[in-house]
Amino acid sequence: MFYELIIIGGGPGGVAAGVYAARKKMKVALITDTFGGQSLVSADVRNWIGTKSISGFELAQNLEAHLRDQGGIDIIDSERVSKIEKTENGFTVKTESGKSFETKYILTTAGSRRKRLNVPGEDKHEGKGVAYCSICDAPLFGDMITAVIGGGNAGLEAVVDLQPYAKKIYLLVRGDEAKGDAVTLDKIKKDPKFELINNAQTLEILGEEKVTGLKYKDLKTGEEKILPVEGIFVEIGILPNSEMFGDLVERDKMGDVIVEHKTQKTSCPGIWAAGDVTDVLYKQNNISAGDAIKAVLNIYDEINKAKN
């Protein structure tokens, strides 16, 4: 099968693109590992427009159901794209399991993944006190002293997830104040077991078999301090899933795919990108969906131009 379009990713951007492409009757496939994007692990999404409140998992299920309701789209799930190669007529899309697919055009909505701290002790203690999914693992830290690293929305969400379980929650923020949602921050600041530590740079995760502490530097005084924590949740931001393109498309120093924001075209003719994998200023579900739709409509114009 030679596709007109292959969409990479099953988050809000990929699914929105898939629905539009199917309704335009393109010869289209969507390849994804999972549905839902990064919101999959959010306990409560309250800004998905048209829905007052929804869990990330339910949002993912809704997205998948909406896509599967479309006729004429090949959904290749449980597959992760590993490499894109330019061919004479378009591109070859290769997956980690060794499958390959041919297409004229590509739209990537491959999103991003969480950054790691890259400090001593992190690798050694993953699964032994260091965790990256608060909604999954917060219940495992009952009556423990914990720390969340990162003051964005994901960090604040991790604090909220820990509140019913942990006996103490430190939030370590690199800057002068947490940058996450002010309403959530105000709410958690009222919890007596919560303590905000600003201007903190994590230096090391301590412990032998399990985590027993966290060493950080107070960036205002230069002093190094140790918190006696047993659990650490890392929420320090994201990295784009753009490696699969190699040098095919232009990326910025963060690895974000640079797009022309009117059409979502990348520097490589035939490849479009939308959502968190791009250099879009605001990484949001609703924006990803809108940008991906914009890309599909532009691809549809290209297909029609080529036919006429």
Binding site: T34, S55, A60, I135, C136, D137, P139, L140
Partner: peptide, 26 residues
């Protein structure tokens, strides 16, 4: 654990494989 989407995905994977398993909620 409660609300863990990866737990649901893992169970769904085992169900699709027709594999019997015992579940404990931590």
């Amino acid at each position: 654990s409660f609300d863990c989407p990866y737990s649901v995905m893992a169970k769904s994977y085992l169900d699709k494989k027709g594999v019997a398993y015992q579940e404990y909620n931590l």
